[in-house]
Design a protein around this nucleic acid. Sequence first.
DNA 1: TCGTTCTTCTAAATCGTTCTAGAAAAACGA
DNA 2: TCGTTTTTCTAGAACGATTTAGAAGAACGA
Lengths: 345, 345
Amino acid sequence: MAGVTLKTVAKAVGVSPSTVSNAYNKPDQLSTTLRERILATARELGYAGPDASARALRSGKAGAVGVLFTDKLAYAFSDPYAVGFLAGLAEVAEEFATSLLLMPLSSTDIAGGSNAVQQAAIDAAAIFCVPGGHPALDILANRGIPAVSTDRGDHPDLSWVAIDEVEAAAQLGEHLARLGHRDVVVLVDNAEAAGGRPVELTLDEVGYTDCELRIRGLQKTMPDARLRIVSGGHNAFASGVRGAEYVLDSQDRPTAIVGLSDVQALGAMEAMKVRGLTPGRDLTLAGFDDIPAAEAAGLTTVRQPIKDKGRAVGRILLDPSTTERQLLMPTQLIVRSSSGPAPKR
Amino acid sequence: MAGVTLKTVAKAVGVSPSTVSNAYNKPDQLSTTLRERILATARELGYAGPDASARALRSGKAGAVGVLFTDKLAYAFSDPYAVGFLAGLAEVAEEFATSLLLMPLSSTDIAGGSNAVQQAAIDAAAIFCVPGGHPALDILANRGIPAVSTDRGDHPDLSWVAIDEVEAAAQLGEHLARLGHRDVVVLVDNAEAAGGRPVELTLDEVGYTDCELRIRGLQKTMPDARLRIVSGGHNAFASGVRGAEYVLDSQDRPTAIVGLSDVQALGAMEAMKVRGLTPGRDLTLAGFDDIPAAEAAGLTTVRQPIKDKGRAVGRILLDPSTTERQLLMPTQLIVRSSSGPAPKR
DNA sequence: TCGTTCTTCTAAATCGTTCTAGAAAAACGA
DNA sequence: TCGTTTTTCTAGAACGATTTAGAAGAACGA
């Protein structure tokens, strides 16, 4: 059973390897009777069909697109936003009978040669929320693998499907400014805070491009406000809790907290509730993404069409009839009960 | 830049291809100075490192684990339960620097030779909620790829990480029986109902082994009850809504509805609310899985440690130090407000 | 009947590595 | 100094398919 290859089958049937290969890949290149004889013999010998790696090597097609996720792969799944993206991408991948290769981005062995991005057999790659300048992106570029990012890059020939981060945040900022907020804390994703202790950051220290742009957007429509940047760790519910705890328990409470993702904002909401604070009354809370749970929780947020984003990325990667290489998706401010007027001083 | 291979680099440096290969894979097999010279030249020539497919072919390791998901890949992501499994699996995969290959199971081209499961370059596979007897499982077995399933199979040498479906459901059944319920509708996943119109099924028609076992478990502790099986489509919120609508709008309302997944049960809850029915008072509702949203909704359900399940599957597949090949995970009945006494006739 | 076009099949090269066995040189111990 | 071990590197054979160019025979039209 082991060691049965195309050759074995060819010899058994008494034809050339090419013909056996054709039996699998180009059925119209040989007579039906022979094809069936080959397939029958293959079954008999326990031949499992052309070896995937060998086929990939010779034909140059891997039949899979890679997905690069923020930092820890496991984290990605805790954010419904990321999952929504994947769902959209999977939909298109399915249509084109292509697999999705989720690659861990463990920064540890990026330096060495043996990391997943280097070794992955993929035809193309989707880059989801990976900070610009990440070594994995260089590897990808170096390998000559076509990629589509969810962030607008600097290179004009880079493909992306993104939102206008600045404008989206500016909308939210305008809403908050109109409500009278002038003291705001922004909760961001940050690897260094992942250790446990929340950290306060400057705009330059914010690693992710999209986070940076969103903060700039807030600044744009809230020029008079004091904006502080705090992180409780990676993008996750628990980080939102920690970040908010840090802020709420300090002497210097803001009147509004903006989570740069809904999961973080919902974490902050939890921290507020534990302290008996009502979102929208005692303190305003807003998020980004509009994941399903945001609606249930009454969270004011900026909606982005995440599943469509995934679909669009998939189309650019897989559908040859898609010519558009850079796509700006619409966003929409969704006002719910978690935002309200700033308390008078 | 194109067509730069190991050989090119070898020629440029003036060494043999083996040595260049060693520079990447076995750094201790050559002097540091030479290694650095090779790496530098490689960088200069724009060599992206050993080709993934070629390496996979020669070394016999693909560096990826396949994941087989229920039917449509895109559906999988709409169920937090499935996502939880993936998160656990991803955690372990990350630890072993292995990628996860999500394969679409589109039944259409399973018959032909060119489907994803056949073509996937993987070392092992995780099988998540795939109905027994699915052609993809045969392909996997035929290819000789070690696999771990989330369902207990019939073969004694098959690896699995599962729960005692019968016992878990029996627990829930006992709870319902004690509350006086004798007329129950079970909502199941069914491909045929996906068209739109809900269908009523017999136990034999239920495709998925785990669903079947759960129903048997209910029967076990509810021997006097009338159990009807209804499906509103695939495993998703919307299917739960549709299935429940069908049941609630009929002349023959049960006193309890059991969703075989929480997403379906939550869909049913939505349908109840639209009709002004309060879960736990007007009609009892229960689910399976205990996804995060179940707690928020007050849904009675059977908890299973899904993330641990994913981790365990990952360990069996990747960690050589794991010897256990078959693992039974604990379940726990979580009673919340959605279940209450059956109304007196 | 003869040249032409299909159909059906094959030989041999190739894809880009890694691996096994072993050679050449350097280091070592007594 | 001479055998022995260690270090460093190489030749050449796999790995298992696909592809290109073309041969052999059948079918065809005139």
